[in-house]
Amino acid sequence: MVAITEFQKIGVGISGFGIFFILFGVLLYFDSVLLAFGNILFLTGLAFIIGLRRTAHFFFQRQKLRASSFFLGGVALVVLRWPRIGMLVESYGFFLLFKSFFPMVFGFLGTVLNLPFLTTLFNLSESSSSMV
């Protein structure tokens, strides 16, 4: 079992608040202050979780430099109060940065859906939604 340090626990909390503020900023029609605060909290939490050196290494690898520039450029645009364009650029950079993780996430979701309780729950929800 992997031991989780206190800094990592704090980082998970900070990242959670960052994601909350980003989602809340999007729901409030791209409020630039909430989005900027959420971006800063998310990046700070990521640095707490995996460490400053690993965070810098992740963002500034040679093959990920274009994706990192889009992501961090989008964060900069949001901070400079251009939230819609910044979130578009940031989303594209996020997709490029984490596209290697998507098959693992989808595989995990596939195993979660094979749990008996969730399978019956999804089967019941599919059969009850009729268009007539």
Rank of each mutant, 00 (worst) to 15 (best):
A3D: 10
A3W: 14
T5E: 12
F7V: 15
Q8K: 15
I10Y: 12
I10S: 12
G11V: 03
V12H: 06
G13Q: 05
I14Y: 01
I14N: 04
S15P: 06
G16R: 03
F17W: 07
I19N: 04
I22T: 08
I22S: 03
I22A: 06
G25V: 00
L27P: 06
L28H: 11
L28G: 10
Y29W: 12
D31K: 12
D31V: 07
S32C: 00
V33N: 10
L35H: 02
L35P: 02
A36H: 02
F37D: 06
F37P: 03
G38V: 00
G38S: 03
G38T: 02
I40L: 12
I40S: 09
L41K: 04
F42N: 05
F42P: 03
L43K: 00
T44P: 05
G45C: 00
G45Q: 02
L46R: 01
A47I: 14
F48E: 00
F48A: 02
F48M: 04
I50A: 04
L52M: 13
R53W: 13
R54A: 12
R54I: 08
A56R: 02
A56V: 06
F58M: 03
F58P: 02
Q61E: 15
K64F: 10
R66A: 15
A67E: 04
F70E: 01
G73D: 07
A76I: 15
A76T: 14
L77V: 06
L80E: 08
L80R: 08
R81C: 13
W82V: 06
W82A: 08
P83H: 04
P83C: 05
R84S: 07
G86W: 05
V89Y: 00
S91D: 03
G93E: 02
L97Y: 08
L97N: 10
F98G: 05
F101D: 14
M104P: 05
L109E: 06
G110P: 08
T111R: 13
V112R: 04
L113V: 02
F117A: 11
L118V: 12
L121V: 06
L121W: 10
L121N: 01
L121F: 13
S125P: 01
S128N: 10
S129H: 11
M131W: 14
M131C: 09
M131N: 09
